[in-house]
Computed example of a mutant assay.
Amino acid sequence: MSDHPKCNSKAVFDPPQTVYEDYYHPQHVDVIHQIQVIRRHHCVPCYHHKTSVSVKDVYCGDFEGGNGREGSATTSSWRNKRR
């Protein structure tokens, strides 16, 4: 093998590769939760019961001035009845 010339050594470089070493550190981040309060107003029925009363005189039997006649006086009024 002495009849082969000795080749000089040579270096060939590939393009560089990037290797990352990641280090993580805590970071304070405020998360703001917005709340909107809506006041809703509603009508609610509150019943107030009223009655109408009428009074009528009816004459039954023997009265002076006629037999079985009805009286002419009638009154009407509103009365409140609350619950």
Rank of each mutant, 00 (worst) to 15 (best):
M1S: 13
M1P: 13
S2I: 00
D3P: 01
D3L: 08
H4Q: 00
P5M: 06
P5A: 09
P5E: 09
K6Q: 05
K10P: 00
K10N: 01
V12C: 05
F13H: 02
F13T: 07
F13Y: 15
D14K: 09
D14E: 14
P15N: 06
P15V: 08
P15E: 06
P15H: 06
Q17N: 11
Q17G: 06
T18V: 14
V19I: 14
V19G: 04
E21G: 02
D22T: 13
Y23D: 09
Y23M: 02
Y24A: 12
Y24I: 11
H25R: 00
P26H: 06
Q27R: 15
Q27E: 14
V29E: 05
D30M: 13
D30P: 11
V31Y: 12
I32R: 05
I32F: 08
H33G: 03
Q34T: 13
Q34W: 11
Q34F: 11
Q34S: 15
I35N: 15
Q36V: 07
I38N: 12
C43F: 08
P45H: 00
P45M: 05
C46P: 04
C46H: 14
C46D: 12
Y47I: 15
H49E: 07
K50E: 09
K50H: 14
T51I: 07
V53C: 03
V55W: 09
V55R: 15
K56R: 05
K56Y: 06
D57Y: 08
D57F: 13
C60Q: 07
C60R: 06
C60M: 05
G61E: 01
G61M: 04
D62F: 03
D62V: 01
E64K: 04
G66K: 02
G66E: 00
G66S: 02
G66M: 02
G66A: 00
N67C: 00
N67L: 06
G68H: 15
R69P: 00
R69G: 02
R69S: 03
E70N: 11
S72I: 07
A73I: 10
T74H: 06
T75E: 08
S77W: 14
S77R: 15
S77I: 10
S77H: 15
S77T: 08
W78M: 01
W78L: 12
N80D: 03
K81D: 06
R82H: 10
R82G: 08
R82S: 11
R83M: 04
